[in-house]
Design a protein around this nucleic acid. Structure first.
Lengths: 96, 96
DNA sequence: TAAATTTGGTTTATAATGTAAACTAGTTTA
DNA sequence: TAAACTAGTTTACATTATAAACCAAATTTA
């Protein structure tokens, strides 16, 4: 039987965020905005959902007088992503 | 930039159906019900969405006096699945 | 043989989710 | 000092997902 897919990660924008963060130690809001092509509102909402699930940590500061929101994957987030990857592979790989 | 994922296939139940059909020439409602673990209502709805998109063909008949609904992937469905697989791999594969 | 149960579904009401428009708050520029 | 820009958040709405309720026919049971 095919495994359940973590609904929090089985969403294009949230998966994009986590996928980008896997390759980077951290990324700020503006970077994620450009890389994902999402709207600001949607990005803000999804970052918060990942934060509430403790998949990412969010650090807010001021740089050059402007607010700066930096995101980084947590160990919990890394684990969830790895499990998601193992799960979806069973759906897409005809010969496992 | 990460590619968009076909929303019709980026759903666990519909992806399960297509994933199962990729390995089989055809499958009936009851088989899909057991393999996916979905409710009958949900399965019925999602089969119809895949049919409306022409990703699958649906053949209804009577066998042993009972109705039988058989589903099979169409070339369009196979192509969509292959594109989905290529797309999601970019999300989950750190080193492409 | 009438009632209850089972098979194989469909319809639809509701819940959950996703998304962008509108908003906030402050900064820079002209 | 007004307009425009940066960097977000809030929220209202639209879309989607899901299962409960329903249906028709066949079968079993009493």
């Amino acid at each position: 039987m095919l495994p359940n897919l973590n609904p929090l990660l089985h969403n294009q924008l949230r998966l994009s965020i986590v996928s980008l963060l896997i390759g980077l130690e951290k990324a700020d809001f503006t970077f994620l905005l450009k890389e994902t092509g999402a709207s600001k509102g949607n990005l803000s909402v999804q970052i918060n959902k990942l934060k509430e699930a403790e998949y990412i940590t969010v650090n807010k500061s001021f740089v050059n007088n402007y607010p700066k929101t930096e995101c980084a994957l947590s160990p919990k987030g890394i684990k969830a992503f790895e499990e998601y990857v193992a799960g979806i592979k069973k759906y897409i790989d005809p010969n496992p």
